[in-house]
Computed example of a mutant assay.
Amino acid sequence: MIVNESVLSLGISLIALFFAGFLATKVNQSLTAVFIVVGMILQNFFPVTIITEFIATLGIIFMLFMFGLEFSVGSLVNNQRKIFFNGVYDLLFNFPLGMFLGWILGYDLIQTLLFAGIIYVTSSVIVAKSIIDLKRSANPETEYILNILIFEDMFIAAFLACIVGVVNYGHIDTKGMLLVMLKTAAFFLFFIILSRTAKKIIDKVVDIEHTELFIILILSIIVLSAGAASQIGLSEAIGAFLAGLLLSETRQRHRISEAIKPFQQFSTAIFFVTFGMSIDYKHAGSLIPIGIFIFVVSSFSKVFGGYFVGKKYALSKRACLRLGFSLIPRGEFSIILAGTIAMNTNVPYPVKSLTGVYVLLSAILGSILMKESDWFVKNFFESKGKEFQPLGRHSAKD
Rank of each mutant, 00 (worst) to 15 (best):
R322F: 03
G324T: 11
I41E: 09
I256K: 00
F263H: 07
I202N: 05
A243M: 01
L194W: 07
R253M: 04
K204Q: 04
A138P: 00
F151S: 11
V309W: 06
S248V: 02
L242Q: 06
D374F: 04
E141Y: 14
L354K: 11
V88A: 04
I341L: 15
L234C: 11
V166L: 15
I364Q: 00
I218M: 01
F62S: 07
V27I: 15
P140E: 09
L323E: 10
T112V: 05
G170W: 08
K311C: 08
V303K: 09
L109W: 10
K261R: 15
G239F: 06
T211S: 07
S257N: 01
F333Q: 09
L189Y: 13
T274N: 15
L97N: 01
T112F: 02
P96M: 06
S316H: 11
V7C: 14
V303M: 14
D173L: 10
I216G: 00
I131G: 02
S383I: 12
T211W: 03
A116Q: 03
A16D: 11
L354A: 10
L189G: 13
K200L: 08
N139K: 10
K175N: 14
R253D: 02
A33H: 01
A24W: 00
I110C: 09
E209G: 12
W103S: 08
I202F: 03
Y281W: 14
